[in-house]
Structure formats: C-alpha cells, structure tokens
C-alpha cells in the first residue's frame, strides 16, 4: 500500500492532469444541472438540492472506486496476462487480500474532495437536516455500495483467468457509471434493472444518496445489505474457484 502511494507521488504531472479532468467533469455536471433545473423545479420527485447531493455522492464514490478498487483490479488482470500473479500467490498472506490492495491511484482523491464539497454545499442548502438516522443510513449504504462494487470488480477480474483479454470490459462500467449522475428511478424499467442488478450503479450511488437525504425505505435498505452480503460471498467463492483452475504462467 505504502509503495503504491509513493509510486504515484513520483508522477506529479499526473496530478495536474487528474485535477483538470475532475474539474472538467464537475463543470459538465454542474452546467447540465443548471440547464435542466432552469426548466423545472423537480425531476421525478427529486428537488434541485437532492440532485446536487446525488452528484456529490456520484463524485465521492467514483473517486473512491478509482482510488482503491479499480487500480488493483486492472493490475490483477495485467498480472494474470503477464504471469506475474505467481509472485503474489506464493506469499503467505491471503491472496485475495493482497491483490485487492496492490495499487492505489492517489490523485483520484481530487474527485473525492470535489464531491465532498458539492455534497456539503447541497446539504447546507437543504438546511443541514441530516440527523442521526440519516448518518447511519448513509454509512451503512455507502459501505454496502462499496462492497458490492468491489465484488463486482473482483468477479470481472477473476474472469481473466479464463479470458485473457477482458480489461476492456471495465470500460462498460465507466460508460454505465455516468448514468448514476441522475436518480436511477428515472430510467425505464429494463434499464433500471440493468443499472441495479447487472452493473450495480444504483447500490453504489442512488441508494447512499437516498440514505443521506432521508428518502430511503427499510425495504431498500434490507435489499442493499442482503445483496452486499451475497456479492461478497459469491465473489469470494468465485475467486477461489478461479484460483484453483489457474495453473500459473510457469506451470
């Protein structure tokens, strides 16, 4: 972990590029937000500050995924392809743990910071009505969302034991992820299903945002926790199954 951070610090230019990218995507989102709400007061049954809070969560989660989950998983796919995964497997620690913390992309913190600012501003505009219940709900749903996205990535990466060239599949996640800038409930039924159960954008963004602004019902919360637990277990089993089938590069 430490080494990963130090590696990144060596490329400070990347920070400027990342800052620019984050700033641009924030600007895009904000202008889009302004254009939409210059024509309406509510979207679905979301008010402007709710959407702004959602945007904050979108940036925060996107930042965390890019910071912690994605780099390690891309690295895993690359290691499988190049055969360097064998070095990790010979270590005495749990392999899943090791591959999951192999790499961080520290500059993605800019998304996290920008997202926190947007979220803070939105909550302030709402009159800081976040109570104890909302805080707990946010913490729980964010953790579950993180667990679901992590498991989703682990399953995809484990597929690389069989299909060597699937790193492009992560692009699908990026493309779908932008759909989460708006409430998933707006989408037509089939797309809602895809964005909830196939690519888990709803659990990653919409549900935590709902938790924070107090529109989450107990049923959704239960489903969220259930899916998270299931995904963690399934991805773990799948990873072990994949590992048993993996013969290594040198074998």
């Amino acid at each position: 972990m430490r080494i990963g951070i130090l590696n990144e610090l060596a490329y400070r230019m990347n920070f400027l590029v990342q800052l620019l990218q984050s700033g641009m995507s924030l600007l895009t989102a904000l202008v889009g937000f302004l254009v939409v709400f210059s024509h309406t007061e509510t979207l679905g049954d979301w008010r402007p500050n709710d959407i702004l809070a959602l945007l904050g969560v979108y940036l925060i989660v996107g930042g965390l995924v890019g910071l912690l989950i994605r780099p390690s998983m891309s690295r895993l796919m690359e290691d499988v392809r190049e055969g360097t995964l064998d070095y990790t497997l010979t270590k005495p620690e749990d392999a899943q743990f090791l591959v999951s913390i192999a790499q961080v992309r520290i500059w993605k913190l800019t998304d996290f910071v920008l997202g926190s600012i947007v979220l803070g501003y939105a909550l302030f505009n709402r009159g800081l009505d976040v109570g104890f219940d909302e805080t707990i709900a946010f913490a729980v749903t964010l953790t579950c969302g993180g667990a679901i996205v992590y498991s989703f990535f682990l399953i995809l990466s484990t597929l690389s034991f069989w299909f060597i060239r699937i790193d492009n599949i992560l692009v699908i996640f990026d493309a779908m992820y932008q759909a989460g800038r708006w409430p998933i409930g707006l989408y037509p039924y089939w797309l809602k299903f895809v964005l909830t159960f196939i690519v888990p954008i709803a659990f990653a963004i919409t549900v935590p945002a709902e938790g924070l602004i107090g529109r989450l019902d107990a049923q959704t919360l239960g489903l969220d926790i259930g899916v998270a637990t299931l995904m963690i277990a399934v991805s773990r089993l799948f990873w072990r199954y994949g590992l048993r089938n993996y013969s290594g590069a040198s074998a």
């Binding site: 939409v36 007061e41 708006w182």
Partner: peptide, 10 residues
C-alpha cells in the same frame, strides 16, 4: 431520460 422526466414534470 432526463429530458423526458423534465417534460413530464412540466
């Protein structure tokens, strides 16, 4: 999808 929602709310 977003603009459809806007049109509906108007």
């Amino acid at each position: 999808v977003v603009w459809t929602a806007v049109a509906k709310s108007r």
